[in-house]
């Protein structure tokens, strides 16, 4: 079964101008990401991987080319439309977690839900589910300052999945963590992928992190130079079933757990 692509990129071009100088960050990039894939983007600094991620997440708009996520052409949306779209379709995980220091873990996760037409009870259920999934049910009322780096990143992931987005985008999610916490976070991402069948895009330059993905794209100077698939990395199929069925709702998965 060939899953339909959730991200379709064609002839994508992005350039910045610094003074009179024009810098091409992404050049004529074409890429499909099938639904339910765990994809890693690798490359040296300045290769354009973060820019690509930002474009897919709708945080920036391309200079030219088409960019379709789900069934929407996001390269032509206004900032406000993009904001609405992001709430429903993209969950973002940052390298430095970026939790609001004044809010508790619970409130941080609740933030994106407030933009959706949900009742307070529904919101509460979803927040608790998300925090349960990342294993932080016992840290609800802690402030970010009272949590370890790994725990903060778990809150960040819970915040990313709480709206049940189609796409989870992670920019160096392990970049600021020690190796043990990093492993835990990667385990969590793989688990989410397996359990919920979410599409995950991760930028990293840690080969160990990339090794957990199903497919790794290498960028250099704004072009795709190489692609490694899961079967090249793990001929034995370490992660088990790579591609299963359509994405599942977060709550259903939780309900199945014993």
């Amino acid at each position: 079964m060939i899953p339909r692509p959730i991200v379709q990129i064609e002839g994508l071009h992005k350039s910045f101008s610094r003074g009179s100088e024009k810098i091409d960050v992404l050049i004529d990039l074409t890429l499909d990401v099938p639904e339910g894939e765990f994809l890693a983007l690798m490359g040296p600094s300045g290769s354009g991987k973060t820019t690509l991620l930002n474009l897919i997440a709708g945080l920036d708009s391309p200079t030219s080319g088409t960019l379709i996520v789900g069934d929407q052409e996001i390269s032509r949306m206004s900032e406000t439309q993009l904001a609405r779209w992001r709430t429903r379709h993209v969950g973002f995980v940052f390298q430095f977690y970026h939790l609001l220091p004044v809010l508790t873990a619970y409130e941080n996760v609740e933030l994106p839900l407030l933009l959706l037409p949900l009742s307070a009870a529904e919101r509460k259920r979803q927040v608790l589910t998300a925090l349960d999934l990342v294993g932080l049910s016992n840290r609800l009322s802690h402030r970010p300052g009272q949590l370890s780096g790994g725990q903060q990143q778990r809150v960040g992931i819970a915040r990313a999945i709480v709206t049940d987005p189609t796409l989870i985008v992670a920019d160096e999610p392990t970049g600021d963590l020690d190796s043990k916490s990093a492993e835990e976070i990667l385990d969590l991402l793989v688990e989410l992928k397996k359990g919920l069948n979410k599409t995950i895009l991760m930028v990293t330059h840690d080969p160990r992190a990339a090794a957990r993905a199903e497919r790794v794209l290498h960028l250099e100077k704004g072009r795709l130079v190489r692609e490694t698939s899961l079967y090249d990395l793990h001929p034995g199929g370490l992660n088990g079933d790579a591609v299963t069925s359509s994405p599942r709702r977060m709550e259903d998965v939780v309900r199945e757990q014993p």
Binding site: L59, T80, A83, W85, H98, L111, L115, R159
Partner: peptide
């Protein structure tokens, strides 16, 4: 500024 940007990433509209 970073917090404002995070809110925007989460889908908060400029007006909000």
């Amino acid at each position: 500024r970073t917090e404002m940007a995070v809110l925007k990433v989460l889908g908060y509209r400029p007006g909000q």
